[in-house]
């Protein structure tokens, strides 16, 4: 078959070929998720079984070097929950207000600076955030709140900053997507710009804003490098009022110890930590999907 006839064959079947190409790319993505799932569960589940699922999830001691070792990850589960909740506390209101400002109040010249700045914020590697946390936030917390500065509070503030770009960008486009007629309708009733924005436009954009928050939460739960640089990383179960003390998250647990895991259950237990993290992220995504379906984003 000559090259000419090959080309004409491709031409004639362009659409079918494209379709298969797309299908192939899509399956690659699915295969990646599937493989991760399989390996994670294959290596993690037996360890969980060995340790006892209940002991593993609710044990408060994480002591891989004891004999026998203890593998309880409750401190880390709670740690992840604390810093995520903290990130929500700092990041969500700030992000939403920033998005409203950008979409409805920002003068054009300022917007030209603000928008790229926020895009840049999204692109900064997490280790750089971590460094910023170490040199700025840690001393700040130490001096103003006490403790050594490596704490739940510090990690929460830092994570709150890191989820800002996600929340701002997605919320802003959700707010902009609200039809202008809706705004006109509110203003025509004698509502002020502020009133129309906060009572009509923002509620109308609520599903998109919710989506941004959930994606932000996903980012906070999964963040590793920056958190481990400022959180103190003690595998100790903390109470909420101990927010100026250190904590270890699920992600930090894995990355801190995987490099020098002891023989036996240690390494599988770390992978099992990954399984728990995976389930968390899956729950968040499911929540996202449900919301999306309900609101028709």
């Amino acid at each position: 078959m000559g090259i000419r006839s090959l080309i004409s064959l491709i031409r004639r079947n362009k659409e079918r070929i494209a379709k298969h190409l797309f299908a192939l790319s899509a399956s690659a993505a699915i295969a990646a998720v599937g493989l991760i799932c399989v390996f994670l569960f294959m290596q993690g589940l037996p360890a969980m079984w060995d340790i006892g699922i209940f002991n593993f999830l609710t044990g408060t001691d994480w002591q891989p070097d004891w004999t026998p070792p203890r593998f309880g990850i409750l401190p880390m589960i709670v740690g992840s929950l604390y810093v995520t909740a903290g990130a929500i506390l700092f990041g969500v209101p700030t992000g939403i207000f920033a998005a409203v400002f950008m979409a409805k109040f920002c003068p054009a010249p300022l917007y030209k600076i603000l928008k790229p700045a926020i895009n840049l914020l999204a692109g900064i590697p997490s280790v750089v955030y971590g460094y910023f946390g170490m040199v700025v936030l840690v001393p700040f917390v130490r001096e103003n709140f006490g403790g050594n500065g490596n704490s739940i509070l510090t990690a929460s503030i830092l994570l709150g900053m890191m989820i800002l770009p996600t929340i701002i960008t997605i919320s802003e486009s959700a707010i902009r997507a609200v039809p202008g007629e809706i705004y006109d309708g509110a203003v025509a009733l004698g509502a002020s710009h502020e009133h129309a924005t906060f009572r009509v436009i923002l509620p109308a954009a609520k599903s998109g804003v919710m989506a941004s928050v959930i994606l932000g939460i996903g980012r906070a739960v999964g963040e590793t490098m920056a958190v481990r640089m400022v959180a103190g990383n003690q595998a100790v179960l903390r109470m909420p009022h101990e927010f100026i003390r250190g904590v270890r998250t699920l992600t930090a647990n894995i990355v801190l110890e995987l490099g020098y895991a002891y023989p036996g259950d240690h390494r599988p237990a770390l992978i099992a930590t990954g399984v728990v993290l995976f389930v968390f992220v899956m729950l968040i995504n499911t929540l996202f999907a449900i919301l999306k379906k309900k609101e028709g984003v």
Binding site: E181, I182, D184, G185, L189, G190, V200, P203, A204
Partner: peptide, 18 residues
């Protein structure tokens, strides 16, 4: 705003709030 309260408006395309 008081002017617009006194002079109401109905638009060409129905625009109820969501």
């Amino acid at each position: 705003n008081m002017l617009r309260k006194r002079v109401g408006m109905v638009f060409q395309k129905p625009n109820p709030f969501p």
